[in-house]
């Protein structure tokens, strides 16, 4: 790791102000990706502004079917929230399969979404659940948030503080994990709210997380695993690497979609 200077913020405003003074600073959430990247000397921020001690960014509240999750909530807390499980178990299940138990104690939903790793799990949930991304500056609709690999609508001094969404009637996430890294090679989050169906795919797309319009239409007209079986997933839009060709990933997207729909019931 290159040299860096560490700062701890106790409020969002303080964090923004600390970053403003830094030459090339970065916000640090759980650090499960950022510290790992810095260790590999693939990132070299001059300053790190730690958000982990900002209490206002933590916690889950459920009001009826309205859900609000603080961006600083760790994966373990999302996975084990009884309140959340009562209205949206799919999101708990997703969180319970990110990384490993130790990573889940540190990694946060905000950090994961802000980083927008193409193989991360949470971006699919943000899109499929049509979450509102709440920052220190504004509210961003899910469909406007992700801008390709590791790119988002966030400005440099913008911090995600929370996510909000209405729990759908049905939802599920099915993930095919890379046999080595255990990141998603194809992760599909499906959600149904009346006639509104959203299908978001992570891990597979060459441009990061995306919604699959063909599957959404098919499922909107007929909510069943069979409905997605006939839908074409274009291999040309898929990543290809040692672990899976684009053809294999395209196939997996379909299989995971089927399994997610079946699991959602």
């Amino acid at each position: 790791m290159y040299e860096t200077t560490y700062h701890r913020a106790s409020s969002v405003d303080e964090a923004v102000s600390l970053l403003g003074k830094a030459e090339d600073g970065k916000f640090l959430a759980g650090g499960m990706t950022l510290i790992a990247t810095m260790k590999q000397r693939l990132a070299a921020p001059s300053d790190l502004v730690d958000l982990r001690h900002i209490d206002a960014m933590k916690g889950i509240s459920v009001n009826g079917r309205s859900v609000r999750i603080g961006a600083g909530t760790c994966h373990y807390d999302v996975a084990s929230s009884a309140e959340l499980r009562a209205v949206c178990p799919a999101l708990c299940d997703l969180a319970s399969h990110i990384g490993d138990p130790h990573v889940r104690h540190m990694g946060t939903i905000g950090g994961s979404v802000a980083n927008n790793d193409p193989a991360a799990d949470y971006p699919s949930a943000v899109l499929a659940l049509n979450m509102t991304v709440i920052t220190n500056k504004r509210e961003i609709a899910a469909d406007d948030f992700f801008k390709g690999l590791f790119e988002t609508a966030l400005e440099e001094d913008e911090i995600i503080t929370a996510f909000s969404f209405e729990a759908p009637e049905k939802a599920a996430y099915a993930k095919f994990a890379n046999p080595a890294s255990r990141y998603a090679m194809a992760g599909v989050f499906v959600a149904k709210n009346g006639g509104d169906v959203r299908v978001a795919v992570t891990g597979a797309g060459s441009d990061g997380v995306f919604r699959h319009a063909g599957m959404e239409q098919a499922l909107a007209s007929h909510w069943s695993a069979d409905a997605v079986a006939g839908i074409h997933v274009d291999a040309e839009d898929m990543l290809s690497d040692l672990h899976g060709t684009s053809e294999y990933r395209a196939h997996l997207v379909k299989v995971m979609a089927k399994r997610a729909v079946a699991a959602a019931g």
Binding site: P179, A180, S181, Y183, L242, H243
Partner: peptide, 24 residues
């Protein structure tokens, strides 16, 4: 079932140089 060292024949680089790509 899982393990295999893989070199990129074009570049001679070791692709499986961490547990991200070498499946244990």
């Amino acid at each position: 079932m899982l393990e295999g060292v893989h070199y990129d024949p074009d570049t001679g680089q070791l692709i499986t140089a961490s547990y991200m790509d070498y499946a244990m």
